[in-house]
Design a protein around this nucleic acid. Structure first.
Lengths: 338, 338
DNA sequence: GCAGCGCTGGAAAGCGCTTTCCCGCCACGC
DNA sequence: GCGTGGCGGGAAAGCGCTTTCCAGCGCTGC
């Protein structure tokens, strides 16, 4: 085993050319190499099964072919969709994606960025949602600076960090439009299952929703905060049922939370949508076949990943670009007229 | 911008020690370094914000801190669960995961492996399912050999490749147990929505299911093949409805396919489970809250990812190890007595 | 008292590649 | 005929790190 790896030097020697020539042939150099030498090199490389050593290339070029992707939980369809978009674009560009997961701990984000910097990743997409945790944020900001100073690019999905490209979903606008649409169904009394208060995405969706209700002249909703997960939605819904709130419509700031909430409601014998209407946010593809079909705000998640990767990969100007993507209200069977 | 990166040499000079000493202090070397020197190096490294250049380390050590993970589609909860397990273990071991997606094209697997080899990844987990495509398989086998010869380890999830560690879910046994359980419910006429015929996972589940039916003295099922996706399940179910088959129970070889199938059945006004019972395979967590709750065979997906990562990370002996994980039949509301 | 040993620190040789610099060659123009 | 320029090829200097090898030193054991 462990037959040593074929090196460029071996290829060069075998082909009877210099190291420089072999390198120029096998990796897009601007320099020309004559037809026959070039062909000879290509052939021997093929024969020997030469594979360039990416580490050595990265070292010599001072830039690797790695792109970082940082998410909270790859199991969450929200993130896996974004990841799909990012990997598609990165792989099409001949780059490899290194996936980091934070497990929803804000401080991991900075750690991962540091690792990525160690690998001289050429770019990184931060898909984790921004928190209001000051310490974690400033540590992260410092890492982002270090990363960009070293020549790497950073893009964020849904969290505008100073100086980075960003893909911003219409969280606020989406929440607002959803609230209006639900108000039009005749609901008067709303509850919101909000995520953790420190998550900006959750706050934005909630704020937008409140604004929408206000637009419609409806009283502010009962708000219950919980984890940004299925279980968080379940727990929040249980809490809601335990309270005296007599809402006819509940908005879970995430489809995944909505699923948990629906489970809780069903368990307590609450019918959807007859007794309570419920809506989510994201329009997770995997969840589209559930019954009753979940009303939600559709976000083009994969596309958002693609956009983020696109931003981060084409060099772009110096200033931070922001791409907004709109959410589209999709009313389905989980919300009924009141 | 682009302030050059702090190098070991700078740290060493600043701390007034040699390169060797600095290296020994900052990276676990077996060699001892005196307390004061050590502390001085640590301090200056901290001050300067030194981050080792992973490429250079990889080159010098001839082994990187990268672990590959190859899946078909990260959006598919089956794979994202496995991915979660793999990343958890890898990150705990201080390694970074590079994620490759094949988009279900078998030939991509070999390409990705080659890229991973270029990066001198220390190990790789192949989670994509094995196909019977001879050409792709032999190309893959060659790449696996090349990879292991270069010193990397390879583990597969659910596809026993010669000479690699493998995590084998009880596809056959699970299918069989499920068939028996469904037979006990009184069903006599079965249909199976099988995946593509060339996917070994699909074949195994189908084969097991058939065996289980045979155990129960029941006639072989109607089999309809389709893509290993939600849409594949939908299409297969539609085809089934169009046929004259009067099955009372349908087994979709995947939960995701089952979801598509249920959508199709509902669309045609077929009630579940009153008119037709349906079962899946995998027990995808995200899908556990659907109504009616899906009967299935539970696989500990994240754990499988963890096991695979564990196998591939601890050096282990020379021979290929195989870890079997059992599937557990879980009967829920989507299957009824007949 | 001295050979020998264990231990720590440093010099330097790589690791496999890119890229600069130089050289020789040819075509061209005066 | 010779100076110029352009062009293709090769030598070699790194890229930032690890690790081997050697030197020096303080001990121990005879």
């Amino acid at each position: 085993m462990s037959a040593r790896q074929v090196t460029l030097a071996e290829v060069a020697k075998q082909a009877g050319v210099s190291l420089a020539t072999a390198s120029r042939v096998l990796n897009g150099s601007t320099r020309q190499v004559s037809e026959d030498l070039s062909e000879r090199v290509l052939r021997t490389a093929e024969e020997l099964g030469y594979v360039p050593n990416a580490s050595a290339q990265a070292l010599a070029r001072n830039s690797s072919s790695l792109v970082g992707l940082v998410v909270h939980d790859i199991t969450d369809p929200y993130f896996s969709c974004i990841a799909a978009g990012v990997t598609r674009v990165a792989e099409a560009a001949g780059l490899s994606v290194v996936l980091g997961t934070t497990g929803r701990r804000p401080e991991r984000e900075a750690e991962l960025l540091s690792t990525l910097r160690a690998h001289r990743a050429r770019a990184v997409v931060l898909a984790g949602s921004r928190t209001t945790d000051r310490a974690a944020q400033s540590r992260l900001a410092a890492e982002i600076d270090a990363f960009t100073e070293q020549g790497g690019r950073v893009a964020c999905v849904s969290q505008a960090k100073l100086g980075t490209d960003t893909v911003v979903p219409g969280n606020r606008a989406g929440g607002r439009a959803l609230a209006r649409a639900l108000a039009e169904l005749g609901h008067k009394k709303f509850a919101v299952l909000g995520g953790p208060t420190e998550l900006v995405v959750a706050r934005d969706r909630l704020a937008g929703f409140k604004a929408g209700l206000a637009d419609a002249g409806i009283a502010p909703p009962t708000v219950i905060n919980g984890a940004f997960t299925r279980d968080g939605g379940y727990a929040a819904a249980m809490e809601l049922l335990g309270s005296k709130s007599r809402s006819t419509c509940v908005f879970a700031v995430t489809d995944v939370m909505a699923m948990g909430a629906m489970a809780a409601l069903r368990e307590r014998g609450v019918r959807i949508p007859e007794d309570i209407s419920i809506a989510g946010f994201d329009d997770i593809p995997t969840l589209r076949d559930t019954v009753p079909a979940l009303s939600t705000v559709r976000l083009p998640l994969e596309e958002m990943g693609e956009i983020a990767a696109g931003l981060v990969l084409d060099a772009g100007g110096d200033e931070a670009r922001t791409v907004r993507v709109a959410g589209e209200v999709v009313l389905r069977a989980s919300t009924a007229h009141n």
